[in-house]
Design a protein around this nucleic acid. Sequence first.
DNA 1: TTCCTGACTGACCGACCGGTCAGTTGATTA
DNA 2: TAATCAACTGACCGGTCGGTCAGTCAGGAA
Lengths: 216, 216
Amino acid sequence: MTSETATHQTRSGSSTIARILTAAEALFAEHGFDAVSMSAIAEAASVSKANVFHHFNSKHALYQATLRRACEKTTRQLNHMVIQPGAVAANLGEFAENHLESILEHDQFARLILREILSDMPKEQLKIAQQVFGENFSDLVTIIRRGQDHRELRADLDPALVATLLVGANVFFFQARNVFRHFPEVNFADEPAHYTRMMVDILLRGILASGSEKKT
Amino acid sequence: MTSETATHQTRSGSSTIARILTAAEALFAEHGFDAVSMSAIAEAASVSKANVFHHFNSKHALYQATLRRACEKTTRQLNHMVIQPGAVAANLGEFAENHLESILEHDQFARLILREILSDMPKEQLKIAQQVFGENFSDLVTIIRRGQDHRELRADLDPALVATLLVGANVFFFQARNVFRHFPEVNFADEPAHYTRMMVDILLRGILASGSEKKT
DNA sequence: TTCCTGACTGACCGACCGGTCAGTTGATTA
DNA sequence: TAATCAACTGACCGGTCGGTCAGTCAGGAA
């Protein structure tokens, strides 16, 4: 097995490993681990099945590599959200909007992770997801806690709980979209920006310190 | 194939069909559709594999029957949430608490449905999930809309969006628990009641009409 | 008593699964 | 030029998959 970080691409055009990983990510995200065969991945990557096993010791190793790459790709983009010194309210709004945008843009990866979370998480995968979520979650908690220190936000709230509500609202929007589209009561299934705006509006009203008031 | 609603139980002790469905629900919820074999289900139900195919035409038919039964079981319990004429705030709080309790109690079923939602939902399954979620969701929307009519809640909010936030907060709590348990910032992963209380507190503050105030 | 029907079983099927292996190819190096 | 080595392939393996089938068996109707 070759080092997965190698960038040789001696024979094929683009890096074979990258092609395999890309195909695997799409298929795993779409159908889940067990429903995808190595033959299907090989075919999608225009590569022989034996070649896939040449680069990845096992199906599980390929799956883990897929997860890892997807994580790195996402964190590199979303990570280290700019914590501006400005008002917390604006920071939270921007975070929420970026967050949902990022989820919708990398929907394959999002599905991959959510699938993983619904399983038992055999410790190794858990660490991966923990890393992805953990960093951004910590940033968010920091923003909220700073807002509390500045007496901008209610001090009696658990900042992690507030962060959970914000992230959860976005994640739930993402995964419930297809169902919501068939609900007569829901008309925001295809307007994520509007959803985030209203969500942040409600959340801010709920967490702003008494005395502060928000626009509108 | 026998009618699935039959209650003959001529030969086996308890209804064979029920035993198969129970085993299937547990296995499908735990590992997903593709990772569970008919042999495994048959063994778990102490029945020959051929017998499973005698009662259910195919693996897919068994899966759908499993979903349907689980849905019926759940809706029968949670359904038609008592809409008291009292304050909307109390109604929402009670709904949220019951909702999360119900999810945690039927965690197998919840995982089953969430897994389903992450897939493409081949129209038939969608209708099932739509039915389960739809009824309770409509009840919740009704409660909120009534609160708006009584000028107890802000009138400028989409009631379905508020309902989404409430349900989403609970669902996200459920599915992110295992990850959250490893986050140093989070200490409410094992206190659903406390989580719901704080969540409703924040949400209510965000949606109550100006002028109204809440305890604490 | 005979017959019929539905619950139920073990043996079996072709297809496909994850994974292996002997061998080919093409660039790199000595 | 010869040797080496990674990238790559087609053929193949044992095992398991979803699903079938001929046949056994118990109970109810005639």
